[in-house]
């Protein structure tokens, strides 16, 4: 089965779970006076779940014929591409999300920029380090001082 039909199957299960919640479980917590309303919080989701199931089934059973297009990246041969770099960058993004608050903006952002470039093969540290640091400081200054959005610059134990 092609990837698009596998995805349709996954989305179908999501639509079914969504529809089950909308049709069967959501209304039980509704206050009695709200039940006299012509519209309930579940009305629109009910319509959407039906639409979603129809669209999923159309793709899953191949009811609509479409011509094959050459894909930009052939997912069956993912190993031929730079998969490890992409995965490492994704891991780096997750690490950044987890570190931003505890470690502080300046440390985590400059580390993110330097490590990201290093993953992609950059080895010119003489330029990379100052560029990453300056960019981090400029963005922090703009966000914190000009826009007034609070960002902890340094780890908490350094008084940041």
């Amino acid at each position: 089965m092609a990837l698009d039909r596998w995805i349709a199957l996954i989305l179908l299960s999501i639509c079914l779970a969504y529809g089950y919640t909308a049709w069967f479980t959501m209304d039980s917590s509704l206050a009695p006076f709200m039940k006299r309303n012509p519209i309930w919080p579940s009305t629109f989701p009910k319509v959407l779940s039906i639409l979603g199931v129809i669209a999923c089934c159309t793709i899953l059973f191949g009811l609509e014929k479409s011509e094959e297009k050459p894909a930009e990246i052939n997912y069956r041969r993912l190993g031929d591409y730079h998969l490890s770099q992409a995965l490492m960058l994704l891991g780096l993004m997750v690490a950044y999300a987890l570190c931003l608050r505890p470690v502080g903006f300046i440390v985590s952002t400059s580390a993110f920029l330097i490590l990201g470039a290093a993953i992609l093969g950059e080895r010119g540290w003489r330029y990379l380090l100052p560029i990453a640091l300056i960019a981090t400081l400029v963005v922090w200054y703009l966000v914190q001082q000009v826009l007034g959005i609070y960002m902890r610059p340094l780890p908490g134990f350094w008084g940041g």
Partner: peptide, 25 residues
């Protein structure tokens, strides 16, 4: 090697500034 980390960083920042919430990332 410079552009991609910066694009990723700006995407992360865009999501963070709007909600100020690390779960968003």
């Amino acid at each position: 090697s410079y552009l991609i980390p910066f694009i990723l960083f700006f995407t992360l920042m865009g999501a963070y500034i709007g909600q100020n919430n690390a779960t968003e990332l």
